[in-house]
Design a protein around this nucleic acid. Structure first.
Length: 543
RNA sequence: GGCCCGUUGGUCAAGUGGUUAAGACACCGCCCUUUCACGGCGGUAACAGGAGUCCGACUCUCCUACGGGUCACCA
């Protein structure tokens, strides 16, 4: 068989050669050790939260080493494509501070960055493979393949197009020509020289040394519409874009031997591989892949809930590099990009997505922000997701900043807020329209005592008093109604008192804020002002 | 089912032949505090199971179990 002639028959319009592209996309001129990475999603209209993991690894590795990070759109499956999805992907990741150096919008010398725009390139290499006997056209119909699969399942053998089951591998030139003339569609298949009895040794930077069964299947390289499958596109694109590190989900591990063969057949140098484990969630006692329908699986969830992007990044980092939390404790205010990201610190096993941990990380990150930052971020979020809150906070920005600033900036900042969505509930009692008198009171305070306490406080509250004087006033009220003004005295002889100063404080807190948990009461009362404070105390006394 | 990857407390995890098997989240207790928080101190809780190698295995090998992935003209 004259493969050269067959290649010409199959792809008469392809006049470029691999040399042409090699020259057009030369090795990158980068410093020693610089990594070139890429994130390559399909524009399906759903941006998965899990994508943040490989993306973050790609971005860190590239930018930390003075390399390049690309975004390549893998739109070779027109059936799954969704309008506008490309921009959604870019916007989503940029929201989390991911900077792409090259992409369909950022440009770059190694494009096009959309696979549907690279058809001629793939076909050139397809033609090259045919010319070298590494690929052949297959005219089997979908029905024939279904039938083959059924037969293999029946016989309990590995399904697939390989070995004795291939039909089109050795068609003669004349047969191919006749099929083409008859207008029969064909796919281009890889002529595998692999043997399922053999193992290939491959090193994965995360998983370590692997021994995987050789690929013996003649996989499809080009679909009948001339568009490549993932595998072909991966080899051609990552070679031509000069990717040094292929970072992807571990679902690709089984096809790795095939990719190794392909790179060999194409004469490409193999890139380094890093396969990242999938994010899981717990269902009963079983770990399940975080799937589309789960809360938190879609990235838009984090927008609408009001997760600050730096909080999410922080959490992602704790899962990606096991020593990140230690580093953060040692460098609480350092820019996250200063963290030395290490491939070695990545876990080979999959982890569970832990919402509680995420929230804890959020609280820590938010607690480190100053009032101005919080104000700007919350209003920015609320503008889109909670117009009522936005209107409330922007009505009097200084008032809002004072509220959001309580307990902030000290050595032991409060950690009340994890998500912006929670801010409304948190600040609600500062706004009359959201405040409701609470009838709930500490159970161990007699209703009659409660009335006495609240009335006495309302009558004596002096908003000009300093914190000590203010508290002394409360202490005096406590003692006047038979409550211990000192916790130690109370603990020593609890039977001597009707309650303690803590109970009294709680009465005031509930009356003024409507809740059992709030920031520092002295600050809260000063911000609210004497008029509201006394009015609320009297209202609560009545209730 | 075949093939592949994985398995340290409820969760995330340190650990690379000899450790009282870190730390974080969650949970519980105590302390601090005017209270809720915050913070501090402490506690419950783990090497999936079985063989083997070795003076000695969480660490190495094998088997089993469990979990996950993959077997498309989808990525």
């Amino acid at each position: 068989m004259d493969y050269q002639k067959l290649a010409q028959l199959l792809y008469p319009d392809i006049d470029k050669t691999p040399e042409y592209y090699e020259e057009k996309y030369p090795p990158r001129d980068l410093p020693e050790g610089a990594k070139v990475t890429r994130f390559a999603p399909s524009p399906t209209g759903f941006v998965h939260f899990g994508g943040l993991f490989p993306v973050t690894v790609c971005e860190r590795l590239a930018h930390q080493s003075g390399g390049v990070f690309m975004l390549r759109i893998e739109d070779t499956d027109s059936k799954r494509e969704v309008e506008g999805a490309e921009m959604d992907i870019i916007r989503a990741f940029e929201h989390f501070g991911i900077r792409f150096d090259e992409s369909i919008v950022h440009g770059g010398d190694y494009g096009p960055y959309r696979q549907s725009d690279r058809k001629a390139i793939y076909q050139c290499y397809a033609k090259y493979l045919v010319a070298n006997g590494h690929a052949y056209p297959c005219f089997c119909s979908a029905e024939e393949l279904d039938e083959l699969r059924a037969r293999q399942e029946e016989a309990k053998v590995t399904p697939g197009y390989y070995g004795e089951y291939v039909r089109c591998r050795d068609l003669s030139y004349e047969e191919v020509e006749a099929n083409l003339k008859a207008g029969k569609p064909f796919v281009l298949r890889f002529r595998s020289n692999g043997n399922a009895e053999n193992k290939v040794k491959i090193t994965d930077l995360i998983k370590g040394n692997l021994e995987i069964t050789e690929n013996s299947i003649d996989h499809v390289l080009l679909k009948s519409d001339g568009i490549p499958t993932y595998h072909m596109a991966h080899a051609v694109d990552d070679h031509l874009m000069r990717t040094t590190h292929v970072i992807r989900g571990e679902e690709w591990l089984p096809s790795l031997p095939y990719h190794v063969q392909l790179f060999q057949a194409l004469g490409f140098r193999l890139p380094k591989y890093m396969h990242i484990s999938q994010l899981m969630r717990l269902e009963g006692t079983a770990k399940k892949k975080l799937s589309k329908r789960d809360a938190g699986a879609g990235i838009t969830y984090y927008f609408s809930e009001g997760y600050a992007p730096e909080c999410v990044t922080e959490y992602v980092m704790t899962l990606l590099n096991s020593n990140f939390e230690d580093w953060r404790r040692a460098n609480p205010n350092e820019d996250i990009d200063k963290f030395p990201f290490a491939i070695k610190k990545m876990s080979p096993s999959g982890c569970l997505f832990d919402m509680a941990k995420l929230n804890d990380v959020c609280k820590n990150v938010v607690s480190r922000m100053d009032a101005e930052t919080v104000y700007n971020k919350v209003t920015g979020w609320a503008e889109e997701y909670d117009p009522e809150l936005h209107a409330l906070l922007t009505r009097d920005p200084d008032y809002s900043r004072r509220i959001l600033g309580i307990g902030r900036g000290g050595a032991k900042p409060r950690k009340d807020i994890a998500l912006w969505k929670e801010v409304k509930e948190y600040v609600s009692f500062f706004f009359e329209e959201l405040f409701t008198v609470s009838a709930e009171m500490p159970a161990n305070v007699e209703p009659a005592d409660r009335v006495k306490i609240l009335t006495a406080f309302a009558e004596s509250y002096d908003e000009t008093a300093d914190q000590t004087a203010w508290f002394d006033g409360i202490r005096a009220i406590a003692e006047s109604v038979g409550y211990a003004g000192d916790m130690k005295a109370y603990k020593a002889e609890p039977e001597k008192y009707r309650g303690h100063i803590g109970d009294v404080s709680m009465c005031l807190r509930v009356a003024v804020t409507g809740r059992e948990s709030s920031p520092d009461m002295y600050e809260v009362m000063k911000i609210l002002g004497a008029e509201k404070v006394t009015a609320r105390c009297l209202a609560a006394a009545k209730a």
